[in-house]
Amino acid sequence: MQTLDGKTTEYLKSTTPARICLGRTGSRYKTADYLRFQTDQYAAANAVTAEVDEKTLKDLGLFEVKTLCRDKTQMLTRPDLGRLLGKAAVKKIKSCCIPSPDAQIYVGDGLSAAAVAANAGDLLPAIRLSLEYEGISVGTPFFVRYCRVNTAKIIGDILKPRVTCVLIGERPGLLTVGSMSAYIAYNAGPSMSEGDYNVLSNISKNGIPPVEAAAVITDIIKAMLKQKTSGYGLIL
């Protein structure tokens, strides 16, 4: 077993949450590190099937619609169903939301319920406040259960906002099970492609903190409204 220069190791470890300067036994990990990894990996795998509860949605002030997926397990193997909304969901969105806002923001569980609980409460009001301060109208927010990113194509089609933004839970990692991404597109609709999104990922207390992320998302939305485009063509 090797000993490291303690001070250097401490310093390097302090600069990143990555699992570095672990030392070794032979070419393998030491017991504590090996078991910590396995503990964290199982926790992340377990987090995938968790659900966003009623209380979280009530606290966030969001009404709920569901995609065509039956449950989380089906959502894993049927991304096609996770992009589609039934007639009832479409009707509910139409009746509860103001049409054609400048920006429509909604929340999806994606692969992490924990991400919604951890980040949406800070993200939503911060984005709304700074957009409205600039005179940009913001649509009625809501929550989509068993949601995939490409629900944005349908939401864009239903509500006709100029910019559509979905805040969605990322698949859980070992560092955090509660990380969120924002997928944002100008004129979102059925014919758009993946390259038309601008994405901000790693929104979490371990990555880009929600308040900081809200500022970036606001800037992206403003740029889209000004340049009337999104994706790689957008100049930021």
Binding site: A18, R19, G173, G207
Partner: peptide, 14 residues
């Protein structure tokens, strides 16, 4: 590092 990518959130080889 220990096969855990802290940015892409997946596990690879260490």
């Amino acid at each position: 590092p220990q096969s855990d990518d802290i940015m892409l959130m997946y596990q690879s080889t260490g």
